[in-house]
Nucleic acid binder design. Structure first.
Length: 307
RNA sequence: GGUCGAGUAGCUCAGUCGGCAGAGCACACGCCUGAAAAGCGUGGGGUCACCGGAUCGACGCCGGUCUCGACCA
């Protein structure tokens, strides 16, 4: 018997993915949840990342949570390795992976494994310095000479992407674009993906309520307990943490911080939608007010038929 | 009641000498190959508070009205 296809529940933040996943997983003893989330990998960042509760984690095995301390930098490649290992273990146990995904790039790294070009820190540092001195356009021209295909795909003002592409091209001696087609291709895969889709206005209401609840149950205390100096660049930018750090530093009032968290979370949710809706392989479930009630029947059917 | 200031995009505000109405944020849309809860781009939005006047031409000048704020009574 071949291993059952992994099933993915994806969607914007606050869509109810975790609740739906728990509802499905508690009905099937062979289900194990894999969190595909760039911030839930951090230990001690629980409230702000809406991490599954201890009770949920006791009831259903969860993977890819609490992988590193907040002081650690974390990247897609590490995530792909951790998730791939977790899913291999699940398959060995004759169990089935239920992926709960909010981070599009991380999900792609396991559904459509890509060749990650490697890193050249010295080259990178030099390029960043040059970008700061000469502006990104100069580097973009250089990239256009070395790897026209890559340069054509990025805006001359997007320093981060240009520096990375040049870092790889100079460091590896191979054009950046030779490492693969990028993310803009969606071949058939043996993964069943369901997306939870909300009307914007309804999701915005849920986001605001959820952020306020996070404050009530101790987000400020959680952030305070993390020493900002000891929080990595990647962890520090997390929604809720960045703004509360600013508040604790006296940069803004608590009200302003909360407003900023809500607004940025809403914008993030839109970015998640835009990322996911490009993927034609995703089956969408429209939800207006009851994620579990609306989505569970269809997911249940998929769990049975594609098993 | 009087004096002064303000009124321009959903919000905060620029707008030089009178010559096609601007920015930031928000919002919509797109991009994304080791930071992705990050980063980058595109553009839809206006009765310039209202009424009148002078001018070839007014957001800008003149007269009046309304609203808000500060101060004086």
């Amino acid at each position: 018997m071949t291993a059952a296809a992994p099933l993915v529940i994806l969607g914007p933040t606050a869509a109810g993915k975790s609740d739906v996943a728990m509802a499905l997983a508690t009905k099937h003893a062979d289900a194990e949840i894999v969190a595909v989330d760039a911030m839930q990998v951090y230990r001690r960042m629980d409230i702000g990342t809406a991490k599954p509760t201890a009770a949920d984690r006791a009831a259903v095995p969860h993977h890819c949570l609490d992988l590193v301390d907040p002081s650690a930098e974390f990247t897609v490649t590490q995530f792909a390795a951790a998730a791939t290992a977790a899913m291999a273990g699940i398959a060995e146990r004759q169990h089935r992976s239920l992926l709960v995904a909010g981070t599009g790039l991380y999900l792609r790294s396991i559904t459509d494994p890509m060749e990650m070009p490697g890193r050249w820190p010295d080259v990178h540092a030099e390029l960043e310095a040059r970008a700061a001195a000469d502006g990104p356009e100069a580097l973009h021209r250089e990239l256009a000479a070395l790897d026209p295909a890559a340069a054509a795909k990025m805006e001359p003002t997007n320093t981060r992407r240009i520096v990375r592409a040049l870092e790889v091209t100079l460091g590896s001696g191979r054009p950046f674009s030779s490492f693969g087609p990028g993310i803009d291709t969606y071949p058939p895969i043996n993964v069943v993906q369901f997306g939870l889709r909300w009307p914007r206005a309804a999701l915005a209401v849920r986001i605001a309520a959820r952020v306020r609840r996070m404050i009530e149950v101790g987000l400020i205390e959680e952030v305070t307990s993390l020493s900002k100096q000891a929080v990595s660049r990647t962890a520090r930018q997390a929604l809720g943490y960045k703004e509360i750090f600013d508040h604790l530093d006296g940069i803004c009032s608590l009200d302003a911080a909360v407003d900023a968290i809500i607004r940025r979370t809403r914008q993030f949710a839109v970015r998640q939608e835009r990322w996911f809706r490009r993927d034609p392989r995703i089956r969408w479930i429209d939800i207006n007010d009851d994620p579990v009630g609306t989505a569970l029947p269809e997911l249940e059917r998929a769990w049975q038929t594609s098993n």
